[in-house]
Amino acid sequence: MASELRETIPTFGEAGGEEGGAGLTNWSALTGASTAKSAGEIGGLILVAVLLIGGLELAVRHFNVAPYVFPRPSDIGSSLLNDFDSFWPHMKVTIRELLVGFSIGASLGIMLAAIITQFPYVEKIVTPYVLLLVTTPMIALVPLLMLNYGFGSTPRYIAVTLAVFPMVMINSATGFRRTDLAKIALARSYGANTLQIFAKIRFPLALPMIIVGLMVGSIFGLLTAVGAEMVGGKNGLGNQLQVYASLIRMAQFWAIILLIALIGVSIYVIFFWIGKRWASWQA
């Protein structure tokens, strides 16, 4: 694996591979947003939120907008408070689908990326299929999966896994391709074996891109979980969207949209902090 080292003296001061550059760009795009720090910034944030929601409330009341076009923000808010007990079991279902599918898909994605990037020949053969998985919306498979696995959670787990896995894999592979021969030489000079080089050099070097993959993958997983619930089944936030839309109970509908958004934002925040903690050396 370190055989490339036996003949070349590495170029120092830069991680190899054109992919490295792309990785950096991706990374800063996802976590480059700054966090509010001063009281003034936080005040500004709150002010804009109040103006936005208040303005919306006033506009809806003033123009007498029909609830099926857009309900009053205050109604959405009271629905969130009053109906949360009936939303929560469904939210748990969606979160569980996401966690199960994400865990399986992400583990598969990282493992396969780690293995496949060690063999450029295999990588070339496998890449078209991974691309196919990346570009195919996995929700499209849900009717088929339901035919085979029924209306329970299984087809959703499978769909989420299939959505998460290629996203994590393709980004992780970009990370694992960033070989830095100088760092590998350093480890080898201390007598490191292949496993140590992987654990202590290749993996940490790939970690920022793996985190990007996990973030993108988890958001795709959420989309797929909600989509799969909308296709069929008896529970989950996606299913509840269908139910409330058919009853034209738009305050509840929008409350659920907000809950889904809340899950999405939480995912972003979690990975933002993971990135800050484990990948800030790259920034």
């Binding site: 120092f12 760092k183 940490p204």
Partner: peptide
């Protein structure tokens, strides 16, 4: 050449 420290 260069310090070759591990940045992480």
């Amino acid at each position: 050449q260069e310090a070759n420290l591990l940045p992480w």
